[in-house]
């Protein structure tokens, strides 16, 4: 019987807060912040499967987010179908696209892979914003709101639980990865691919699987986000900024850990919400303030705490254990 590590206690505490909060607080602003924290956390967790566990750092994950968002927007607005069908379509398309990108990742390493993912998301951006006849082009698509679970027209409280459910599943996938054979194999490929192959790990197949899984998970997040926000804008859903956001949360929280993406999301999303609420009325330029902080934080974290918040907590724990002894 292994002991229950502190990170799992932290996750359990966060789960408790997120579950109980909607029962106590009915303020739409607080609930909205909670939903966004959970959604961005889940999306960053999806990125983490490829970027953190498999070491395939993508700067184009907005491609899969956009596929999910557009699938549901077109399915509901154009074909009057259920968003759940859109979710399914998005997952299927993302698996195909993820397979292609994953195949690329076998040939390209480091910056080459990151560059190819940027190019891929840019091609989709151009398609979505210029193919006016089908996607309504750069105007974007309003996603119709129809009350009910089957049409994903939910109240804030219900959205909290939907987002929490997805976040929990994604956390579970990664907690499983951390202690499973597959997770260890991925770590092997990430740290030293040649050595992993020498030990008989099918690194190529493994990387494709990781990127494809990550793509499908991101697409689900994109679909839910589009349904929640109610509008799909090609320049947002396919933007490089969005791709960076997934990576940023994960790096700040801790790459390759189940809790990291959610810690990062709590920190970054609440900072963003707070600064927006504080500054938005004053002057448009202040909208950029939190992004300046993001960028600087990213540089500092990469430089001084490359393992992120979870890594810092580990170091602190080790230091205290030594101090006690």
């Amino acid at each position: 019987m292994t002991s229950f590590p502190p990170r799992r206690w932290a996750a359990l505490a966060l789960l408790g807060v997120a579950t109980l909060l909607p029962l106590v607080v009915r303020d739409a602003f607080v609930l909205d912040s909670l939903i966004l924290i959970l959604m961005w956390g889940a999306l960053s967790a999806a990125w983490n499967v490829a970027g953190g566990y498999a070491g395939q750092v993508s700067l184009g994950h907005a491609a899969f987010f956009g596929i999910g968002a557009y699938s549901t927007a077109l399915m509901t607005a154009r074909f009057q179908q259920s968003p759940w069908l859109g979710l399914l379509l998005g997952v299927v398309l993302s698996i195909v696209a993820g397979g292609v990108i994953g195949y690329l990742s076998n040939r390209l390493r480091g910056p080459y892979f990151a560059l190819s993912t940027i190019a891929f998301s840019q091609v989709l951006l151009i398609l979505a914003s210029r193919w006016r006849g089908f996607t309504a082009g750069s105007e974007g698509i309003p996603v119709p709101f129809r009350r009910g679970f089957w049409t994903l027209g939910l109240s804030h409280v219900a959205w909290v639980y939907v987002a929490l459910g997805v976040a929990l599943i994604y956390y579970g996938v990664e907690a499983w990865l951390e202690s499973s054979r597959l997770g260890y194999q991925l770590a092997g490929v990430r740290e030293d691919e040649d050595a992993a192959e020498a030990l008989g790990i099918a690194s190529r197949r493994l990387k494709i699987h990781a990127v494809t899984l990550s793509a499908a998970m991101t697409s689900v997040g994109g679909t839910l986000w589009a349904q929640y926000v109610g509008f799909v804008d090609p320049f947002y859903v396919f933007s490089i900024d969005l791709s960076i956001r997934f990576a940023l949360n994960t790096i700040i929280g801790g790459m390759g850990t189940a809790l990291g993406p959610f810690l990062g999301s709590i920190l970054i999303t609440s900072l963003e919400t707070y600064l927006r609420a504080t500054f938005s009325g004053l002057k448009t330029g202040f909208a950029g303030t939190y992004l300046v902080i993001y960028g600087t934080a990213l540089i500092l974290v990469v430089r001084f705490a490359p393992e992120g918040l979870t890594g810092l907590a580990d170091r602190l724990g080790a230091w205290r254990a030594r101090a006690d002894a």
Partner: peptide
């Protein structure tokens, strides 16, 4: 990865 995200962070900071 550290290099990629350092320059990405620099890009975000300068843009904004």
């Amino acid at each position: 990865n550290a290099q990629i995200f350092t320059t990405v962070g620099l890009s975000i900071a300068l843009q904004n």
